[in-house]
């Protein structure tokens, strides 16, 4: 895609915004994201791309923090999953669908499947030992650096929730955002005008 997209010169100024600054005035000259960037909305923005580049690891780390700290502090698998998917949504907004595709660890459907498997497996594992469904097993260890750390099976369950939430958001984004964007792109390439919708988002 990279060569193809860069092969198209970005037109200076847009038909629906006459008189404005040229479209690429804030476009970065360096490569900040992992693919040739074609943002979901409007022109490229150096601010957005740099922020995305810097924030994505932090957001993902924060989401894991929410996941593991959920038992004692606000957070948990659901909130963590939402935060993690936010990182991908940000990446999508900044870099477009190819950036999203390059960034996600696996297909959303697989995330969903993995999450269900994890949660269902954790739920049913106690059955194998003749225990009731979803019984929590925990083990507390004292680690040199971290101090007292508790490993409990609900963390696995919460990880399943986490994955499912990420999968849900990604598949919705892929469906509603990326898919439509792809169509718009096709339509633009074919010379069709998109009419008033662009204005609605701008």
């Amino acid at each position: 895609m990279a060569d193809l997209e860069s092969a198209y010169p970005v037109p200076a100024g847009r038909a629906d915004r006459p008189g404005g600054p040229p479209e690429d005035w804030e476009a970065p000259r360096e490569r900040w994201l992992s693919t040739a960037v074609r943002p979901a909305f409007g022109p490229r923005s150096v601010l957005l791309e740099v922020a995305t580049r810097l924030l994505t690891p932090a957001i993902l780390t924060f989401s894991v923090f929410l996941l593991v700290s959920g038992h004692d502090r606000p957070g948990g698998g659901f909130a963590g999953g939402l935060v993690a998917s936010m990182a991908y949504v940000l990446r999508y907004i900044a870099g477009g669908r190819h950036e999203l595709a390059a960034g996600i660890p696996m297909q959303p459907n697989r995330l969903l499947a993995l999450g269900l498997l994890l949660a269902g497996g954790t739920a049913s594992a106690p059955l194998l030992f003749g225990r009731p469904v979803l019984e929590v097993v925990s083990y507390t260890a004292v680690l040199p650096l971290f101090g007292k750390v508790k490993f409990a099976s609900y963390l696995l369950f919460e990880s399943g929730v986490f994955l499912i939430v990420v999968g849900l958001v990604l598949s919705v984004v892929a469906a509603l955002g990326a898919r439509m964007e792809a169509e718009e792109y096709e339509a633009r390439e074919r010379g069709g005008a998109w009419g008033p919708e662009e204005g609605g988002a701008a």
Partner: peptide, 28 residues
């Protein structure tokens, strides 16, 4: 809240995530 979600009422949560996954597939 989280103890309720992941432990006391974990079966409910399990049902909900199944619904979530179904909804994701359905929306897509």
């Amino acid at each position: 809240v989280n103890i309720i979600l992941a432990d006391f009422r974990a079966l409910d949560t399990l049902g909900e995530i199944v619904v979530l996954a179904t909804a994701a597939v359905a929306v897509a």
